[in-house]
């Protein structure tokens, strides 16, 4: 059964039609990659899933996105709990200017997940272990998260997210600020996380999409051109535009 379903989704920035009649359905506990050249609307699409586009005043959206059988644009949707359920990792690692510990404790505190100090400490430790940062950072919990390397910072952002127990992880070019080794580490982590979470990743790195994704969607100028199993998209796509893009004729 599909976890996320977009139906006749249209999005406008003022007069600019940024997403044109997008229909897609994303399966549970798989990695779905959205690829396409810059400006094709892939990040915009990702940011509709947790309604981050609401922060931009001129945005207007038609159509629906169904997550867990609920239309997230319905008036009764609680945006804060939607965003807790549908977490996001950003292009540039954005840890809070707080300590490593407080970065993870933030979500636990605002959602009242850990009540006692012991619970809090335990959950922070679990969070750091799940992104393989515990051994590196267990003696630096009190230091500022701004002093971490980019890879550590991005891992911390993922740990911070996992701590609030989301169902879906949206990743907006999570490796574009990282070097190839760090990228490889994050990709390994994604494959590990796939066991428990549904991951949607936006990337303009086609090889990355080919390496990690189960399903892949190709977008061009606001339209979702093709959506299929990753092997199919990367070996024998149905549409000419997709083939031209993955063979490097443009993009």
């Amino acid at each position: 059964m599909s976890l996320i379903r977009a139906e006749k989704l249209n999005l406008y920035y003022g007069n600019f039609h940024a997403l044109i009649n997008v229909n897609l359905s994303i399966e549970e506990k798989r990695i779905t990659a959205i690829i396409g050249p810059s400006g094709c609307g892939k990040s915009t699409l990702l940011r509709t899933f947790n309604r981050m586009n609401d922060l931009i005043e001129t945005v207007h959206i038609d159509g629906s996105i169904i997550i867990n059988n609920e239309n997230i644009f319905s008036k009764t949707t609680d945006i804060d709990s939607l965003r807790r359920k549908v977490g996001m990792v950003f292009q540039r690692p954005n840890p809070f200017p707080l300590s490593v510990y407080e970065n993870i404790a933030f979500g636990l505190k605002i959602h009242k997940i850990a009540k006692t100090r012991n619970e809090l400490e335990h959950t922070v430790e679990q969070g750091l272990k799940s992104v393989l940062l515990w051994d590196q950072l267990k003696d630096k919990l009190k230091t500022s998260a701004l002093n971490l390397t980019l890879e550590q910072a991005q891992r911390l952002c993922i740990a911070r997210l996992i701590a609030v127990k989301p169902e879906i992880l949206l990743m907006d070019e999570p490796c574009s600020a990282l070097d190839p080794i760090a990228t490889m580490h994050i990709e390994e982590l994604m494959l590990e996380l796939k066991k428990n979470y549904t991951i949607v990743i936006v990337t303009h790195n086609m090889q990355q999409a080919a390496r990690v994704s189960d399903d892949t969607g190709f977008m061009l100028l606001g339209k979702l051109i093709e959506f299929n199993k990753a092997e199919k998209i990367f070996t024998n796509p149905d549409k000419k535009e997709t083939e031209d893009y993955i063979t490097g004729r443009y993009g």
Partner: peptide, 13 residues
């Protein structure tokens, strides 16, 4: 702005 985005994306009010 990214701090605010990060907080909101975690479901903070």
């Amino acid at each position: 702005r990214r701090y605010k985005e990060a907080a909101l994306a975690l479901g903070a009010t």
